[in-house]
């Protein structure tokens, strides 16, 4: 149970960063951290005590495998996270080019 709590603490770090900080790059960092925490939570629920990786071998028969379904979900989620991060970075760089700042409170004042 403590390991789930540590994972939740990591998620709360990301949430705090998203809600509290004003710099756009810091907000992207918070989104990345909370995404990591969610991925970690999925993999934690899949673990089995004394389990092996879900790959069959031709020499020995492996009986005690971990749950492969969350692995498959997380595998797609990681690549989607990279694509959305790149999209966020593109928007942030365009904002910097237009307004000359990363601060979200300054952007509202300068109307282009």
């Amino acid at each position: 149970m403590i390991i789930y709590l540590l994972c939740l603490v990591l998620f709360c770090c990301g949430i705090y960063c998203i809600l509290r900080k004003r710099n756009i790059i810091k907000i992207i960092v918070g989104i990345i951290i909370s995404e990591y925490a969610v991925n970690l939570f999925f993999i934690l629920t899949a673990y089995r005590v004394g389990g092996r990786a879900p790959i069959f071998s031709s020499e020995a028969e492996i009986l005690n495998m971990v749950d492969p379904l969350p692995h498959a979900l997380v595998l797609t989620s990681i690549v989607i996270g990279l694509a959305t991060t790149a999209l966020l970075v593109a928007i942030a760089m365009r904002i910097y080019e237009k307004y000359g700042t990363f601060d979200i409170t300054k952007i509202r004042e300068l109307k282009g």
Binding site: I25, A46, A53, I55, V66, L75, I78, Y96, T101
Partner: peptide
Amino acid sequence: LKAPDVAITQLVVEILCLIILIRATLKKDI
């Protein structure tokens, strides 16, 4: 946690993500 597929993907994706973020933040200390 016995997830080698996810570990390989996370490693390479992390490197690419780091390169993209460094490109965005270089020489922009606000």
